[in-house]
Design a protein around this nucleic acid. Structure first.
Lengths: 220, 220
DNA sequence: GGGCTTTGTCAACGACGTTGACAACGTTGT
DNA sequence: ACAACGTTGTCAACGTCGTTGACAAAGCCC
């Protein structure tokens, strides 16, 4: 029979989970989530499109691991620092993950949040809320407010390119400036001033939320 | 040659944009976004999978129109009512669209927000912010805070089934209650109280934001 | 009623995720 | 050293998806 299988692997060393994850991460950071196909990923690694199935059950498992990796950058906050600083730092890091990995945020949104690292994040937030003086009866409400705020702003940043990308921002600005002032009076007048620094907006409204939490905690 | 083309349309009347939109909306409200394929949609309408391309350029155009339709439910607020009531009402209606059409919210997030109705929404918000006394220099910041808050909470509600769905909520609660308390001390202790009414959380934090806007507007 | 545009059908293309059989490779036991 | 074995990459293939182009039926206008 003819030659089946190459005598030696092409340019690439053996495959392992980390090499796959790194290539996948690079691929969708540089070219977006749609570019992350098994065939393309295989090509990038000099390997057949189906080779990755020896290391991950399916594409979803790969994506899940990829996402969980992102959250490893968030460290446990020091136990003796003020709760407000700790909570602010967690929220800021969390939000930045969405901003800096917009394509993966898209994938995050689509699937259940059962990543192991997310449990840690939740636990740390709850701890700080308890330290802030939030009562057990209120903590569900308080945590949900923190989660919605952080992930919400994050998702918006990830899904709205004009918020984080400067050129898109200018395009959007021009779109609003070009609207018919008879129909959109306020939009046109305000177009030149829309789209400020997203991190500043997030930081400011985060402080608002922290103020409210502090008021609740010290109220008793 | 054999019989080509049916002598009469099967059970269905002629196709038009609205019939397609209605079927598409029903399909993804009932079975989720992944169920909305051109083949399935055609089957639902008693029509070939490619028949819809006579009425919409491609699937994305169809989705875009579908999304824009959702925002028609939001009416222009009365010009003489208090700005705070008007703004609150816009934000609440906006948020509810995401909550009530989770599968479409998923599609909304993935594409550029150049739907005509969104321009109106933006314009109305800007008008109320001006009426609140926000200065032109601050209005970009203020509007972005309103947008991120509303759409952010909305996206989270749409993407997190355990927030709006009761059975999923119980499952999630059990997941947290079953965590190892040595590793997740706060999470386990608070599990029974997590996941309150999402609309209440949204309403409360919205009031926080409105407070801050009011303070800014009356500060001068 | 003849000619025109509109609209649905059909077969097909390329890309996608995934599977199962097969072959090369690496390791291990003796 | 060598045979046995589990691991890992390759290949061909399946079913699904969105979409296109040629064709035919339906509707419309004068």
């Amino acid at each position: 029979m003819a030659i089946t299988g190459r005598p030696a692997r092409r340019g690439a060393a053996r495959l392992d989970r980390q090499r796959i994850l790194d290539a996948a991460r690079a691929l969708c950071d540089e070219e977006g989530l749609p570019a992350l196909t098994m065939r393309r990923l295989g090509a990038e690694l000099g390997v057949d499109s189906t080779a990755m199935y020896r290391h991950f059950r399916d594409k979803e498992a790969l994506l899940s691991t990829l996402i969980d990796e992102l959250f490893l950058d968030i460290a446990e906050p020091p136990a003796n620092a003020p709760w407000r600083d700790n909570l602010r730092e967690i929220m800021r890091s969390w939000w930045r993950i969405y901003r800096d990995h917009a394509s993966l945020a898209q994938a995050m949104a689509g699937q259940a949040d059962d990543e192991p690292q997310l449990f840690h994040l939740t636990d740390w937030c709850l701890r700080e809320l308890l330290r802030a003086g939030i009562t057990p009866a209120e903590i569900g409400h308080a945590y949900q407010a923190v989660y919605n705020h952080t992930v919400g702003h994050g998702l918006v940043a990830a899904f709205s390119p004009w918020i984080t990308n400067t050129t898109d921002r200018d395009g959007q600005r021009r779109t609003y400036a070009a609207l018919d002032p008879a129909i959109f009076p306020a939009a046109q007048a305000s177009a030149w001033v829309l789209y400020p620094d997203p991190e500043e907006v997030f930081a400011d409204s985060t402080e608002l939320l922290l103020d409210a939490l502090e008021a609740r905690g010290t109220r008793l």
